[in-house]
Amino acid sequence: MKPARFRYLRPETLEEALAMLAEWGDDAAVLAGGQSLVPMLNLRMAQPAVLIDVNRIAGLDRIEIIGERLHVGARARHAEVLRSATVARAAPLLALALGNVAHEAVRNRGTFGGSLALADPAAEIPAVTVCLDGAILARSSTGERRIPAASFFEGVYTTALRPEELLVGVDFAPLGPDFRFCFREVSRRHGDFALAAIAFAGRIEAGRVGECRVVFAGVEESPRRLAAVEAALAGAAVSDEQAWRAAGDGLGAVLDPIEGAEYPAAYRLLLARNLLLETRRQLEEEAAR
């Protein structure tokens, strides 16, 4: 269980990296944290001709506020994002989700951008990035694209990133101070990928949901905001279990859950509904505090 041979490139600057990507394109794999790529290499499920290791490029790991927006560099390690005071203030949902990502040794190495670029349907970070309407910054030697998270994820392990592009970071616009966040996950064991998880962001005014965003991880092939559910919840009281239940019952018409031998689609749908109801309970409990 050793990787096939590859050519190892180690750019020192972003420009170098982009030039390499321009040259190698689909034949290259970008090595950031390696927590998903290296197992695939070891299993020889991935056999890229070239590995472009971006770990030495300065500045790709920044976590900072630029203007009003939170910028998370693509190579920011999960552990750094999880512990960042800046993230805790500007986008607490990220930290809530990251507590569910794998285990400490993996979080010490795995990167925020790597998780987005991989687009594993069961991963937490893509879901919260969609929930927060993040803008994914993709650079190539010809320029930079800002790809809205909503159009970034195109399927299982498939994104809008082009072969010559490098994901360099994500920007998050601030949400108002009256937003509440919730992230809940069902995983088989502590630290496992999500069988289902919910990311919720919502403005709560006088006990009622205003504008809100609902995204699931692990349920569908890609995370997406569920406009119908968000509309159903808008205006509902947090205490109005019936309204939430109705929104949950509506999920069947909205979701297209992953089918599997051990976990059938109906099960993931059930988990999604129950996660929505748990979100309500959590909001209610937090309001009572």
């Binding site: 190892y8 390696g34 070891n42 770990n55 400490e104 040794a105 993996v106 010490n108 190495r109």
Partner: peptide
């Protein structure tokens, strides 16, 4: 200073 999975990092890294 941080614990990592030694099987998921290349020696050259």
């Amino acid at each position: 200073g941080r614990v990592v999975r030694g099987c998921l990092m290349l020696a050259v890294q």
